[in-house]
Design a binder for these strands. Structure first.
Lengths: 321, 321
DNA sequence: TTTTTCGGGGGAAACGCTTTCCGGTCGTCC
DNA sequence: GGACGACCGGAAAGCGTTTCCCCCGAAAAA
């Protein structure tokens, strides 16, 4: 019996193998606990069965939820997932794409906002270009800046709708915890929100920058509150920041929503255990993860798809008399 | 210039390569965007630079935190991580180990409780045995049942200490949301808790089983509360269940800790944004993730290490008059 | 019966790299 | 001046699969 025969039975080859031989191979394999070496297989087939995933931070519920969906979807298609976490360092992101390219992964999913740093975006873009040139395919969740399949959340219109909804509750003076300058997602949400207010003839929001994470939200809200403010509603450009803001306000003894209303963006799953329930803009996180994998694995021409967002009013925002 | 020379410059070979040649290779590589094929490298070296990680559920903050630390640590050592999520299905766990073995990963980290199903444990054990036989190394966070390096959280003594602390607040009638039967971690914590009560001469707790996740905690607490109960303190065997319990009690209009105190276990990071702050037993989640990687990568003999747990009293448990 | 066809088996090349071994070129030390 | 050693480039042998191609025997067609 030759290697060729063994190979044919151990993986779905087109070629048939006689029953006796087939069973002999099977039995030998299970007895020895033999497993085909995927690295060698990848080499010979020049096609691997792993999917690359790059996120900012796995312990952030936003990314955890997406990653979970990605792993699940990949698994259902017989792929294993390689993850990298960048902690919002664009260099690390480029580095991971390079690593994944070196691993010759089948496809790459990039989750997380782009920056407005053109130089770094260009480098990432060329890195992805190389990946594509070698037959790889990539999908990004965020902004269409990289020349690959893109899932674009409705950051701008979602934030705009939120502004309108909040104004509908009677609020007129707003602050926005805007995250860091340079993060496109943050900027889009801020812009959309401001746009919504402007359209209603309301004054522009007070903008408080900060880090894009829970502690950034905490710090920004604490600063805002301690300075004293007349705003009646606070919009944090993502839910983890809003969560931090809620904590800061609670610590400071501010009543939410009595003294100040708070809203976020994303609708991360951990939100449902917060009190008061956080008003937010829902994004279908798990669905986005799944869809990103489908795009990355798809064969259609490069596409960009937008993802609708939906305003969800909860108890953290009150109606003004 | 030969392939050999190129190989020598592109990866830290022991052999030196002349300056001119070296630079020529470097330049060519960067110009062409050439990256060494890791699969081929792994094959030739018969040693890969990937680490396998198997968790139950990435969207559970407990695992997210551990996974995050694992990825981070692996990254610092130049390894990439392959993740699998099992959603608490032991079969899936075995399957993932098989896959990771096929990938010839350098080491495997298994996070998550064992079951008391001996047949399945045995199969996982032999699978890991095969992996070890082929030169791989594994570490598990949980119970020492698999014959590999193990990080054992102080589930029993931690829960015992919690029982004592809660009794110290004046509580005497307890309920325990015990999770599913068969999950060793859950069983250990329940046993430790009961042990603590018994040692103080207190009556055994009312035991309410349920799923080991947030919704399981919600359901169990809702059931307990709707039945009416005279317990003054509720211990959920992990924090996500406790989180669910808190939500259920809030929904039912129960005052925590006024009418009933609640405690959990793990001290997951999302806890700090809950109100009231949840009393729990802290486990150094990130540290455990890091340490598990170190064990899995270590060269020492197989070891089992225990991880200390610390009672943290917060506002969800009140002192009884 | 002879010729085709066809299904299944085996040999060997190829995949892209690493690494050992070999040979050649200098420089240096007796 | 010769011998020795340090250093460096290249050829070639794997690493474990897949796959192309050839071959053989049996069944089907002539």
């Amino acid at each position: 019996m030759s290697l060729a025969t063994a190979s044919r039975v151990l993986n779905g080859s087109t070629r048939q193998v006689g029953k006796v031989l087939r069973e002999r191979v099977q039995r030998a394999a299970t007895e020895l606990g033999y497993t085909t070496n995927r690295a060698a297989q990848a080499l010979a087939r020049s096609a691997s069965d792993v999917l690359g995933l790059v996120v900012h931070d796995l312990s952030d519920p936003y990314f955890a939820e997406i990653a979970n969906a990605v792993v699940r979807t990949a698994d259902a298609r017989g792929l294993t997932v390689m993850v990298g976490t960048t902690f919002r360092d664009p260099e690390a992101e480029i580095g991971y794409v390079a690593t994944l390219r070196a691993q010759r992964v089948r496809a790459i999913v990039l989750a997380g906002s782009r920056t407005d740093d053109e130089a770094v975006t260009l480098r990432l873009r060329t890195e992805l270009g190389r990946f594509a040139a070698s037959g790889g395919r990539a999908a990004v969740i965020g902004q269409d800046l990289l020349g690959v399949d893109t899932l674009v959340p409705a950051n701008r219109t979602g934030a705009r709708a939120l502004a309108v909804a909040l104004a509908g509750l009677g609020h007129t003076r707003f602050a926005v915890l805007s995250g860091p300058p340079g993060l496109v997602t943050a900027a889009d949400r801020l812009a959309g929100f401001a746009e919504g207010l402007a359209a209603l003839g309301l004054p522009p929001p007070r903008v408080v920058p900060g880090a894009f994470d829970r502690d950034g939200g905490y710090a920004a809200a604490a600063r805002l509150w301690s300075e004293g403010t007349d705003v009646t509603c606070l919009f944090a450009v993502n839910d983890v920041m809003a969560t931090g803001a809620l904590a800061a306000l609670r610590t400071a003894g501010a009543d939410v929503p009595g003294e100040i209303s708070v809203a976020g963006f994303d609708d991360i799953p951990t939100l449902r255990d917060l009190t008061p329930g956080l008003t937010t803009v829902r994004l279908p996180l798990a669905g986005m993860g799944r869809r990103a994998v489908e795009l990355a694995l798809g064969t259609e021409a490069v596409a960009t798809e937008s993802v609708a967002a939906e305003v969800v009013i909860r108890e953290s925002t009150r109606r003004l008399p």
